[in-house]
C-alpha cells in the first residue's frame, strides 16, 4: 500500500466512524494501516486449517450445542 493510499484509507476509516483524528494521528494511522497488513498476515496464513463454521445456535462441525457443558460462545 502506498503512503498516499494508506493516508486515504485511514482518513476514510476514521471519517466513517466519526473519529476526529488530528493530522499527526492520521499520519500515524496511515503508518499503522500498512504495518497492520503484515502483522495480521499470520491469521490469513492459518486460515486453511480453520473450520468453516458460521455463528449459529449450534456448531455443525461437532454437533455441540451452545450452553452445553464446556461450550463457549465465541465472538
Amino acid at each position: 500500500m502506498s503512503t498516499e493510499h494508506a493516508l486515504a484509507y485511514a482518513a476514510f476509516a476514521a471519517s466513517r466512524l466519526g473519529v476526529p483524528l488530528t493530522d499527526e494521528e492520521l499520519r500515524h494511522a496511515a503508518g499503522r494501516a500498512v504495518a497492520k497488513q503484515a502483522e495480521l498476515a499470520p491469521l490469513y496464513a492459518a486460515l486453511p486449517g480453520a473450520p468453516v463454521e458460521g455463528t449459529l445456535t449450534f456448531r455443525p462441525g461437532n454437533q455441540a450445542v451452545r450452553g452445553e457443558a464446556g461450550s463457549q460462545i465465541d465472538g
Partner: peptide
Amino acid sequence: VVAGRVRRM
C-alpha cells in the same frame, strides 16, 4: 472474520 475463524480453530 478471519480472526474469529482462527479462534474456532
